[in-house]
């Protein structure tokens, strides 16, 4: 399983309720279901992925997070997970506010556009970055709103969102992000993992 998923799973307390937004083929959900909490549900847009989730015995609702998160009542889950999907939304700000409303804690991960390889691509090669966490070309990427770790931290600070845990992931190594090492982590991390609350 991806290191990112292990970190997410480790952030969740036993027997708490979880909504995985954009749960994909259910890999993370299945791990959480089997090891941490049975009270987990998913929201997913792809019919093929939903079939895979059902095959795994997971409860998933077909829907588009930008439209269908509205139907979930406030504070209805202990955790809401959004793994590497924020950048693909038309209106990420709206999605984040829905996550904060629905979950007591939200776990958001983002591919870091501030990572040095990304900067290198653009700065020296002059082409849109293609990396492990950003595998698509400019013309077929689903990503509409890329941001860096620093962007996301600023976003939370500006909106008084309680960013109570920030982790950076590079080459399967996890480290903490704080205000002193933010610029450095923004340069050296492939992925940011954030636990946020209202």
């Amino acid at each position: 399983m991806k290191e990112e998923f292990k970190i997410i799973a480790n952030s969740i307390q036993r027997e708490k309720s979880i909504l995985d937004v954009g749960c994909g083929d259910g890999e993370l959900m299945k791990f959480i279901y089997e090891n941490i909490s049975k009270k987990i549900r998913g929201l997913e847009i792809s019919k093929d992925n939903i079939q895979k989730c059902i095959q795994k015995g997971l409860t998933v609702i077909e829907g588009n997070a930008e439209i269908d998160l509205q139907q979930f009542p406030s504070n209805s889950f202990d955790y809401v997970i959004l793994s590497q999907t924020l950048q693909a939304f038309l209106n990420p700000e709206k999605v984040i506010s829905d996550l904060l409303r629905i979950g007591k804690t939200s776990i958001v991960t983002i591919p870091n556009f501030g990572f040095w390889k990304v900067r290198f691509n653009l700065l020296f090669k002059g082409t849109m970055p293609v990396t492990k966490t950003l595998p698509n070309e400019w013309y077929n990427t689903p990503n509409l709103h890329m941001c860096s770790i620093k962007d996301f931290v600023n976003f939370c600070n500006d909106r008084k969102i309680n960013l109570f845990k920030s982790l950076a992931l590079t080459n399967n190594k996890v480290s903490s992000i704080n205000k002193f090492n933010l610029n450095f982590k923004n340069l050296t991390s492939e992925l940011g993992i954030f636990l946020i609350e209202k």
Binding site: R41, K47, I50, Q51, I54, T59, V60, I61, E62, G63, Q71, F72, P73, S76
Partner: peptide
């Protein structure tokens, strides 16, 4: 969903 029932949909 509004009453947090266990519901899947396809």
């Amino acid at each position: 969903n509004a009453i947090n029932a266990d519901v899947g949909f396809l």
